[in-house]
Design a protein around this nucleic acid. Structure first.
Lengths: 347, 347
DNA sequence: TGCAAAAATGCAAACGTTTTAAACTTCGGT
DNA sequence: ACCGAAGTTTAAAACGTTTGCATTTTTGCA
């Protein structure tokens, strides 16, 4: 056992050529005779030669890796986001011969320190940054370093340019409002979170903008806020909205997990959906299709987005474009059975 | 912008020491004077020195990475398996200072060829192999190479030794049978897949063994088989079992996705669960909690398993133990509302 | 056949570390 | 003041590539 790995020197010796020539031949340089190139390629294939990554990286300065620092997560991760995201990244990268490095933040260490380590150890040629917070120190660091990156999500104040791809939550929430308004709804509820994430503002602002655009003074919007990871507090917040004296006829949740809580609590309170209450979410997680009566939501096609992020990042790495690359992806409505016409009888 | 990354040579120059001394000081060698060690550590911290991974890997032969070849997957991945798995691996690795490399198989390439590339390019010190098939060429390759690995799952014929961690599906399916038998069920159904994966046999055999152990000749087991990724064929297979003249009172599905299909089709056929039909799954995916009436299933705690796999692999890499490391994890029953006593009236 | 130009190949340095073996310092004991 | 030993530090090689530049070989033409 323990077969040795063949090296360029050995391959060269077996061909009676210099290391230089073999290296160039494998790289397909024109200056090497075609005949030689073929001979080398043949021998390399047969010997199962694979160039050593470390050596190549050391001399070329390119590792062929893209880094992703895993967002620190609570004990329960129910959705498929991360799986879809890394799958999409992988698919996008592999077509260019790149691979993915996943770095995890240890308990004591901040996400930023892990990012620094990834960048400065030369492990990666670029990084992907997810879950952008309102003031994100990671982006500030990467900009200062001049290190290639693409953000999945945006900052609010774009006074500094960077590459990003984001789902157009503002548009989706506007679309949700318009659809519900056409269905006769006038009293709306928004269930949101208190975390300092930009997507929260973008979606809420999109909803508010759509309301303003409609210009109907009879439209009302109630907002409740819950902490991100406290399920008990979420339930209480939802019930504050549901059990009040004058509850909305349509509730929009910042994301599906919240919407599912709304549906559970609404069912517990005996409201029939969508007859008495419409609910709309965002993300289209798997459970949304199964939770009765089937949650109407928006699909952001994470996997496809991740693939595009990979493409963008590889472009940034290879070409260092002057203008930043940006993409705004419009999510698609997944109409299920949790929304419908506003109830006729209004007290 | 574009701050340069500091190198060992520069750090040594700034301290007026040789590269050797600084390297050793940072590594904490006793032979370097304590005073010097502290001085170096201080300067390194202040300068933000991070050793270059490629250089270190090249000379030491250790990359500090563990590889995972992403299983090729269809367009729709609904579960959170991959996300939990990489999160768990990351958590397990980071405590030992290691990180994860995710390699994706490009469209034309086999998973094996990607694995070969990861191994022979020296990118990783060890690999994790998931989704073990009946005759798995990856395991054969890794054994031949003598390369450190841990398999998530087992081969059927253990005539060759290797390191693995697996969930005890056989035990779970036996437990499911016993529970259902005690509830009065005698006519069982098993919905399985036609793919050549070992977990399929292990679970089915566990069920069969429990039946045999009980020794009750009145127990009956019907089995239907569907291809893994064809939802339409799945539905047909499930209906073959459900709509037959004499359907089982309890159906066990190989995994939750199949169980959810059973529940959907049963609901469509008008059967009430668990009154007329009991259903049990395996995996405890998120949707199982939401699909009415709530699927009873087994939780394999993927994240925790992945963390242990990481630990095992790092042990294998560091210590090359003579005996293979193996762990069999017993899944825990998650009792929801899809199982209950057998219906009284039997035609 | 000779010679320049073109084509093909090779030498050697470089990338940033770790490590072996050697050299230099310091110091107590005589 | 000298010696050896212990305590420190360093020079240089090595890891496996890529690449600028030099060298060798081939080719075409006189």
């Amino acid at each position: 056992m323990t077969t040795r790995v063949i090296t360029l020197k050995e391959l060269a010796a077996s061909l009676d050529l210099s290391i230089t020539t073999v290296s160039r031949a494998l790289a397909g340089h024109e200056q090497i005779a075609l005949k030689t190139r073929e001979r080398v390629a043949q021998a390399a294939r047969q010997a199962g030669y694979v160039p050593n990554t470390a050596a190549r990286t050391l001399v070329s300065g390119r590792s062929g890796f893209v880094g992703l620092v895993l967002p620190i997560r609570g004990p329960n991760l129910v959705d498929s986001f991360l799986g879809e995201f890394v799958t999409g990244l992988g698919e996008g990268l592999v077509s260019h011969g790149a691979d993915l490095i996943l770095a995890t933040a240890a308990l004591g260490h901040s996400e930023l320190s892990v990012l620094r380590h990834v960048v400065e150890s030369g492990r990666a040629d670029g990084v992907v940054v997810t879950r952008i917070a309102e003031t994100d120190e990671r982006l500030a660091y990467l900009r200062e370093r001049g290190f290639p990156f693409v953000a999945h999500g945006r900052l609010l104040d774009s006074d500094f340019d960077y590459n990003w791809l984001d789902t157009d939550g503002a548009h989706a929430f506007g679309e949700a409002f318009d659809m519900l308004y056409e269905l006769g709804h006038r009293h709306f509820g928004l269930v949101t979170i208190s975390e300092a994430m930009t997507f929260r503002h973008l979606r809420q602002d999109g909803l508010a903008a759509a309301i303003a655009r409609r210009g109907d003074p009879s439209v009302r919007l109630d907002v409740v806020t819950a902490p991100r990871f406290d399920q008990q507090a979420r339930i209480e917040a939802v019930n504050r909205m549901l059990r009040g004296p004058d509850r909305p006829t349509a509730i929009v949740a910042l994301f599906d997990e919240l919407a599912l809580t709304v549906m559970e609590e609404a069912a517990r309170a005996g409201f029939s959906m969508p007859r008495e209450l419409s609910v709309i979410g965002f993300d289209n997680i798997a459970a949304s299709a199964y939770a009765p009566p089937g949650l109407t939501t928006f699909d952001a096609s994470i996997r496809q987005c991740a693939r595009e992020i990979a493409d963008m990042l590889l472009t940034v790495i290879a070409e260092k474009p002057g203008k930043p690359l940006t993409r705004l992806i419009r999510p698609t409505l997944v109409a299920r059975a949790s929304h419908g016409p506003a109830p006729q009888t209004r007290s």
